[in-house]
């Protein structure tokens, strides 16, 4: 049974954590895509930016969270979300909107978003340096060990992971209610279906675009902060996130928020399962195996250093066999 607990700790928990992060990132990418019709490559850097703002705030007020019994970074999250949303809207007004009014091809918008990526990366590294920093300033990360009766190995969960699961569920439910119940959410869906028709029927498309950036920026801050809280803040965080997030968005069907969530978990679990060393699970039956089937010590599908191959492989497989994604996204 120890092996099962090990599997739970290293696959189920780790996969859910990565899945939550990828899902929140992919929802942002897919929303921007469905409203503005281009792949927003700066999204992973918006996540880093959000985490960085929260880190700065936490460093300024290290004990703000003590009164509530939460990590300070969580208390600072709303401010970070507001700030990142403002930055996102500002970037849109300054750089994307002029290009939109010139009616450039979507690929030019993609290049512009690469430019924004570089700007954000440069700014963050200019101020944050290049090293990793913990978001727990002056505090300790709480670790919960759940004893399972009859088994020596406990189930291990950390405080940020629990918060991450709660926040992800809240964000997904909130997004669902917003998109299906509220007037603005319905307007947003209308615009993603047909921008011209939406404009003709009196929907304020400018407002919808602003709203899209606000939602994407907030989700990016949430995901970036919670990831940095779980591991550590690194300025090159975005680099490891970009490919999985896009793979998740495409797997789920571009322009399909709930598909993006499913895609995020799929990519997250695929990554975790691929780097998991399966020979640990087979250890109990190792001695009863015949000689010609000796198990190698390392039975992982790919080494940790090749983790990036997994989302790429998923991406390629989806592009070959089902370019619309598993939930049939719209524009290809």
């Amino acid at each position: 049974m120890n092996e099962l607990i090990y599997f739970f700790n290293y696959v189920v928990v780790a996969g859910s954590v990565t899945g939550c992060i990828y899902a929140m990132g992919a929802v942002g990418v897919t929303l921007i895509y469905s409203i503005l019709r281009f792949a927003h490559f700066a999204h992973a850097d918006m996540m880093t930016l959000g985490a960085f703002v929260v880190l700065l705030l936490t460093m300024l007020f290290p004990h703000a969270g003590d009164a509530l019994g939460l990590p300070t970074a969580i208390v600072m999250l709303p401010i970070g979300m507001v700030f990142t949303s403002l930055v996102a809207v500002g970037i849109d007004r300054a750089f994307y909107q002029p290009l939109r009014t010139h009616k450039v091809k979507p690929i030019v918008m993609v290049i512009a978003s690469l430019g924004v990526t570089l700007m954000l990366q440069g700014l963050i590294r200019l101020f944050a340096g290049t090293g990793a920093q913990s978001l727990y300033v002056d505090a300790r990360k709480e670790i919960f060990r759940l004893e399972v009766p009859g088994i020596t190995r406990p189930i291990i969960l950390t405080e940020p992971q629990v918060i991450l699961f709660v926040v992800t569920i809240a964000a997904v439910v909130g997004l669902h209610l917003f998109l299906t119940r509220s007037r603005l959410g319905k307007a947003m869906r209308a615009m993603s279906d047909n921008p011209d028709l939406a404009r003709a029927s009196g929907i304020n498309t400018r407002l919808i675009i602003t709203l899209t950036w606000v939602i994407a920026g907030s989700l990016a801050t949430l995901a970036g902060t919670l990831l940095s809280l779980d591991v550590a803040f690194k300025p090159d965080l975005s680099f490891f996130l970009l490919l999985p997030i896009f793979a998740a968005a495409i797997v789920g069907g571009v322009g399909h928020p709930f598909g993006a969530i499913a895609g995020g978990f799929l990519v997250g679990f695929a990554e975790t399962l691929a780097v998991f060393n399966w020979s640990v699970l087979l250890r109990p039956i190792r001695d009863s195996l015949p000689d010609w089937l000796a198990l190698p010590a390392n039975l992982a599908l790919v080494g940790t250093e090749y983790k990036i191959v997994v989302p790429f492989f998923i991406l390629i497989a989806v592009l070959i066999w089902r370019p619309t994604g598993i939930f049939k996204g719209k524009v290809i």
Binding site: T117, Q121, G122, R125, L126, G129
Partner: peptide, 26 residues
Amino acid sequence: NLDSRALQARVFVIGLLILLVLRFAP
């Protein structure tokens, strides 16, 4: 680590340059 930060400033400039060229001299 001042020097590595100064070199990062060039990243910002490259990004800005891409955006300005796309906007004003496509």
